[in-house]
């Protein structure tokens, strides 16, 4: 038992070192240009978004489809903190995450009483309200947007990506994470086991919003210009799709699908119509023929182990019938 835990830790540690080393080497030696560095940053941001939503949907079973709202809050507040208040970038990122977590609390408290589709549409509604607030807020430039200095680097993105993954993985594999999973499995039974279901649903939502906010800060400082238009319904859907295509309940699935989809959409970016037509077709086909997503509910580490640790994915009630 003990030896396995340690070896898993080392596998993770070595993987991290290798990924970081390769990235660092490629950038430092000038083997890749800023296009690819940007791509790596975008992948890191999208993974953070995917993993943070995975905690809400995949682990806690709460169908939230307005994650872009918290992404937007992080993006704007990080920009306010650096550009208007002159705070250092890492501090601004963390503060932006906290602001977004507070927003997550405010949104989560009333809406997490709702279930299934109702929760989905409520979170979508909140995300739209958040976007409209930024659209009308002159302090951040309203519809025309605000200029932001580029500060996001591959190193920052990587470090915050790492923190996100560690925190959410550690959370999931603890009694707190199991409490969330039990809510996903059967809320009434979880309640009768002494689990404060409201607390854990809101907690998962707040942690998810925190990291979405940090992702937003990284995003807004990766371009020179910030506009509300980037945080619409489609962005929320994008994040949702990472989580579902990866396999609900699988963190590695979310990471892999966020990476793959970001790569694919970057390579097709000069043909936006074809890209979106293919994207939507792939989405429909996967949902029809492999609705459990890429990884099902398994983690990539399960593939290397003989005995599977049974986690299971959420089983949202069926439609119809």
């Amino acid at each position: 038992m003990k030896t396995m835990k340690i070896s898993r830790f080392w596998i993770f540690f070595i993987t991290v070192l290798i990924v970081y080393g390769i990235g660092e080497f490629l950038i430092a030696t000038g083997r890749i240009d800023s296009f690819y560095e940007n791509l790596m940053i975008t992948i890191a941001i999208n993974i953070i978004l995917a993993v943070s939503l995975h905690l809400v949907i995949g682990i806690t079973g709460q169908l939230s489809i307005g994650h872009a709202g918290f992404f937007a809050i992080g993006a704007y507040f990080a920009a306010i903190f650096t550009m208007n208040m002159g705070l250092p970038f890492p501090v601004a990122l963390i503060l932006a995450g906290i602001v977004s977590a507070i927003a997550g609390f405010i949104v989560g408290m009333p809406s997490l009483r709702l279930r299934g589709d109702y929760l989905a549409i409520a979170t979508l509604g909140f995300a739209e309200i958040i976007r409209i607030i930024f659209l009308n807020w002159e302090y951040v430039g309203g519809a025309s947007g605000m200029t932001v200095t580029k500060m996001t680097t591959w190193q920052y993105s990587f470090i915050f990506l790492l923190i996100t993954i560690i925190v959410i993985a550690n959370f999931t594999n603890s009694r707190h994470g199991r409490a969330c999973i039990s809510i996903r499995e059967d809320e009434i039974a979880a309640d009768s086991m002494g689990i404060n279901t409201t607390y854990y649903k809101v907690l998962a939502f707040v942690i998810g919003s925190l990291f979405a906010g940090i992702a937003g800060g990284l995003y807004s400082h990766n371009f020179y210009f910030l506009q509300p238009v980037n945080f619409g319904v489609l962005k929320s859907f994008d994040i949702l799709i990472y989580v579902v295509l990866g396999g609900l309940g699988s963190m590695s699935g979310a990471i892999i699908s966020a990476t793959l989809l970001t790569l694919v959409s970057t390579y097709f970016q000069n043909f936006p119509e074809i890209r979106m037509v293919l994207y939507s077709l792939v989405l429909i086909i996967i949902m029809l023929y492999r609705p459990q997503g890429l990884m099902g509910s398994k983690e990539i580490t399960d593939l290397f182990r003989r005995k599977k640790s049974v986690k299971g994915g959420p089983h949202y009630e069926n439609i119809g019938t």
Partner: peptide, 27 residues
């Protein structure tokens, strides 16, 4: 085909169909 499938799979499919129609039209 999704009638016995999960709600979230159906929701994602609906989003997929929606995007598909929009972008076929744009194409």
């Amino acid at each position: 085909r999704l009638r016995r499938s999960t709600r979230i799979a159906a929701l994602i499919t609906a989003i997929g169909v929606s995007l598909f129609i929009q972008y076929v039209m744009i194409y």
